[in-house]
């Protein structure tokens, strides 16, 4: 229902940002994400930045598998509860 992709903010002019993904650029509105800064990766949906992408959110496959095989659950696995 909601196609959205990450892109990098490369310029900001008021409530309008310019984002880049794979060399493709487009203007996006920052009205829904006024805290975005140049250099942030943001999730873009329908021409709007919706959220800052937290790049430290690691691939959790290994941790998940360890958990499924009996290792104690870690705090990270709870996500951001």
């Amino acid at each position: 229902m909601c196609l959205a992709v990450p892109a990098k903010v490369i310029a900001i002019d008021g409530a309008v940002g310019r984002v880049e993904r794979a060399g493709i650029e487009r203007e996006v509105s920052l009205m829904l994400l006024p805290e975005a800064k140049v250099g942030d990766y943001v999730l873009v949906h329908a021409g709007f930045a919706m959220q800052i992408v937290d790049e430290t959110d690691a691939d959790e496959t290994d941790a998940l598998l360890a958990e499924m095989h009996g290792a104690p659950r870690t705090v990270e696995l709870e996500g951001l509860h």
Partner: peptide, 12 residues
């Protein structure tokens, strides 16, 4: 090409 994939990702 990455650019083509980029256009596809954005526009679906």
């Amino acid at each position: 090409h990455d650019e083509v994939q980029g256009v596809c990702d954005i526009l679906g």
